[in-house]
């Protein structure tokens, strides 16, 4: 699955962009203007996703991974958040320059999103059936009865037992895992081509997490959707992703396909992150740690943002910001010593 160039989006009214990717983010900049100053939350992030593949965006809190997703969906809180540059092209059309109405159509039908906290993402005062049926009525002009029928099908699709009966339940009457399934059903309602899953299983137990990840993978396969999985969990990523983009302080520091990234990380941050992870299958002694704290986005360190925490840091790192260097294939790394790391045994 890592060979992404082969797979192009299913031809279905491709307008504009020729050999473009299904969803392509280029040089995106977002800042938060706060009382305390301007926090550069995203500083030139570029990634793309094609039909049928899973891109994992990996990062710790504050790395900008969720803000990128919010910007794609157009649900960034403005203020304080402002897009200050870049483009987000879906099927070749830039979402950022498109009119409000057009963009709303893309939301749901083109790109849909699954959130971490299903309880707060669903409206507590309406039944689940009503919320899904309403979507069909509003966006597809269906009758109420047809809407409910489609809602039943969707709940069936996400494997909620006794789907028809459960349409009458309110969100709080579902367990955490089931609620997440409901949200996935809602995201799928309008047949999106790209699904963004923002920490979809962080709030769930491991056994339920496994079920949900299986479900997402299955749906992605069946519908040939592109999926962006946003997470901090290196384990989940290893299980489902095709390609990975690692983010730190609002930049992508490393991009690679899944096997290469875990097999031979080419950025000190990725390397350190993998080393600091307790493993189920290994009983280690002391864990390697990354010293210090994630940077304050109001005062991002000069040069490479990771340099104060980096074990490999040299003088150049504090003065010069490393660019994302291509390392052959789909991999790239933003480190002055990337080639050194790439060349090692």
């Amino acid at each position: 699955m890592s060979d992404i160039k082969v797979k192009t989006a299913p031809v279905q009214g491709v307008n504009g962009g020729s050999a473009s990717h299904l969803l392509e983010i280029e040089n995106l900049h977002v800042e938060f203007r706060t009382r305390d100053g301007v926090a550069k939350v995203i500083n030139g992030v570029s990634y793309h996703v094609d039909a049928g593949e899973t891109l994992a965006v990996l990062g710790e809190s504050g790395s900008g991974k969720s803000v990128t997703a919010q910007t794609i969906m157009g649900i960034l809180d403005t203020p304080p958040g402002f897009v200050t540059g870049g483009s987000i092209r879906f099927r070749g059309k830039d979402l950022l320059t498109m009119g409000k109405d057009e963009r709303r159509l893309v939301r749901g039908e083109g790109i849909a999103m699954v959130f971490q906290d299903a309880l707060s993402a669903l409206n507590p005062v309406f039944t689940v059936g009503f919320q899904i049926a309403e979507l069909f009525r509003k966006r597809r002009g269906m009758s109420r009865a047809d809407g409910y029928k489609r809602a039943t099908e969707l709940l069936d699709l996400v494997k909620i037992p006794a789907a028809k009966a459960r349409l009458r339940d309110f969100p709080h009457q579902f367990s955490g895992g089931m609620r997440q399934r409901v949200m996935i059903a809602m995201a799928l309602a309008l047949d999106p081509e790209v699904l963004i899953a923002d920490e979809p299983t962080t709030a769930l137990d491991v056994t339920v997490q496994a079920q949900i990840m299986d479900l997402l993978a299955e749906i992605r396969r069946d519908r040939n959707m592109g999926m962006i999985l946003i997470t901090h969990d290196l384990g989940v990523v290893a299980d489902v992703a095709d390609r990975i983009a690692v983010m730190y302080a609002g930049r992508i520091v490393e991009q690679a396909d899944v096997h290469n990234l875990y097999g031979k990380p080419c950025h000190p941050y990725t390397l350190a992150l993998l080393d600091s992870l307790p493993r189920l299958d290994l009983k280690g002694q002391e864990l390697n740690t990354i010293k210090g704290l994630p940077p304050n986005l109001l005062r991002v360190p000069s040069g490479c943002a990771f340099h104060p925490r980096c074990q490999m840091a040299r003088d150049i790192c504090s003065t010069q910001r490393p660019a994302l260097i291509e390392l052959g294939g789909v991999r790239s790394s933003a480190c002055h010593f990337a080639e050194e790391l790439y060349g090692r045994e």
Binding site: Q209, A210, H259, D281
Partner: peptide, 19 residues
């Protein structure tokens, strides 16, 4: 078996028991 292991090569190796 449900715990994801941060190692993509474990995908095939791991026994999958889904509750």
């Amino acid at each position: 078996s449900a715990v994801p292991v941060p190692d993509p090569t474990a995908r095939q190796r791991k026994a999958v028991i889904r509750l």
